[in-house]
Amino acid sequence: MSETGGNTLKAEARSLSFYYGDYKALKEISLPVHDRKITALIGPSGCGKSTFLRCFNRMHDLYPGNRYDGEIILHPDDVNILSPKVDPIEVRMRISMVFQKPNPFPKSIFENVAYGLRVRGVSKRSTLEGKVEQALRDAALWNEAKDRLHDLAFNLSGGQQQRLCIARALAIDPELVLFDEPTSALDPIATASIEELMLELKEKVTILIVTHNMQQAARVSDHTAFLYLGEVIEFNETKKIFTNPDKSQTEDYITGRFG
């Protein structure tokens, strides 16, 4: 396990570059992700923050013409998850993801949460039920959903659907959860409940979040990276980034002078 300043690292990008065909979207990014902390990625549209996030579960492998260069090391076993020798499915079984727009399956609430377990070959009813309940509790949806587990997920409100997607991502006991602007499609109240949830979740799991909303990064994260044009301009503790950034570009962005 590598240590930096007393903090354990869960993952580490090491001079990671990423190409969409010939276009170099990420330029030699090196970034630590601290264990059981929230790391936020901020930056203007098109700066590569979502592209960077989607490297962590090899989502780019789904589309032709994409190429990684460099490494993402996942601790504690120090495996480079970008290595062609590592099956992307293995990576996705360890690192789960919550998407920008709630995307539940058109199935029941129960089946949505259970799907990741079914993919792992769990079929015993009692195991599934226990895990689904735990995941829904962790996602603060249990009280609202416990009496309607077999209702269609589409009957939930937008904020509940996103919490369902979080429960679905948690049910598989992930080591790291990726959040790709999880509240951009939600109203302020639902947003607040998701933020509160993330703060509770970091007791158990490491979180890497992309957000457009700088207040959100300031409120929930422990560390923040500011990305611009495919490069990490500045990475530091969130408090430092938002009160006294080292780089003038970072300051311009967080004070709203550009971006």
Partner: peptide, 10 residues
């Protein structure tokens, strides 16, 4: 987004 949701779960 539904395809990605399934893939993301492994």
């Amino acid at each position: 987004s539904i395809r990605e949701a399934a893939y993301a779960l492994g």
